[in-house]
């Protein structure tokens, strides 16, 4: 689905990614772990096309219509339309735009690009109903402004709601588990599991083995100082939980 090779990237002149190599195939689920500040969110934002992050070397190739294309030339909205989704570590609040207006505009833009018919508000509300139920979110969240006054956990649920609306091919979930209570973690994990299929790929950025009890990764990577220094299967996460990162670094 995506091939990242020797990727280097800077933000505000600081080199954060220092040669990342990562290939994710269709249907795979990868977990990325690593100490604070190692570049996990940077990697996700670079893939989603955040303008503050400059790519200085390497490449990102993404599968569109059975061809690998250079992702870096595409605007963020085009990447989203082509099925890339980033669940933000810190979803921002946008006062003045209701969640419903936002979701509907987003959904219809993506539909238009993919050749699917647009929906009107009424139909869209009907379409959202089971998704809200799945995430145990009340419909009142639609009437509030985007993430406006949402609790930390509610913001994360709102991200997964957006994911379920857009049905992406490649989802990057940046610490979606952080800030969720035990029940909410289950709800969100169930949601992600239901959205997972043989045709899409998921990258989970997490600090906790706990999430991986619910969502089983095929691969686990450790990102440290802008490089992937270790990859393994899910037993690596258990090992990290016990031993921390020190044994990998020294």
């Amino acid at each position: 689905m995506i091939k990242i090779e020797n990727l280097t990237a800077t933000v505000e002149e600081n080199e954060i990614l220092k040669g990342v190599n990562l290939e994710i195939k269709k249907g795979e689920l990868h977990a990325i772990m690593g100490p604070n500040g190692s570049g996990k969110s940077t990697l996700s934002k670079v893939v989603a096309g955040h303008p503050a992050y400059k790519i200085t070397g390497g490449s990102i190739k993404y599968l569109i219509d059975n061809n690998y294309v250079d992702l870096t030339t595409l605007e963020p909205d085009v990447r989203a339309k082509e099925g890339i989704f980033l669940s933000f570590q810190y979803p921002i609040e946008i006062p003045g735009i209701t969640n419903l207006t936002f979701l509907l505009e987003s959904f219809n833009q993506v539909c238009e690009h993919q050749g699917a018919p647009a929906m009107k508000e009424k139909e869209f509300r009907y379409f959202l109903k089971p998704k809200l139920e799945m995430l145990q979110m009340s419909e009142s969240f639609l009437e509030r402004s985007v993430n406006g006054g949402f609790s930390g956990g509610e913001k994360k649920k709102n991200e997964i709601l957006q994911m379920s609306v857009l049905n992406p091919r490649l989802a990057l979930l940046d610490e979606t588990d952080s800030g969720l209570d035990i029940d909410a973690l289950k709800v969100v994990a169930d949601g992600v599991n239901r959205l997972k299929s043989a045709d899409n790929s998921i990258v989970l950025v997490t600090h906790y083995q706990r999430l991986l009890d619910y969502i089983k990764p095929d691969f686990v990577h450790v990102l440290y100082k802008g490089k992937i220094i270790k990859s393994g299967d899910k037993t690596l996460a258990l090992e990290l939980e016990k031993k921390g990162y020190d044994w990998l670094i020294s």
Binding site: P76, D77, L86, I94, I97, Q109, H113, Q162
Partner: peptide
């Protein structure tokens, strides 16, 4: 820029995202 990026990362083109932000 963060608000703009958030909207664009959901498939909303720059033009439409700006319009939403002006209205907001």
């Amino acid at each position: 820029e963060e608000e703009l990026f958030y909207l664009m990362s959901r498939g909303i083109p720059r033009k439409n995202a700006l319009k939403l932000l002006f209205i907001a």
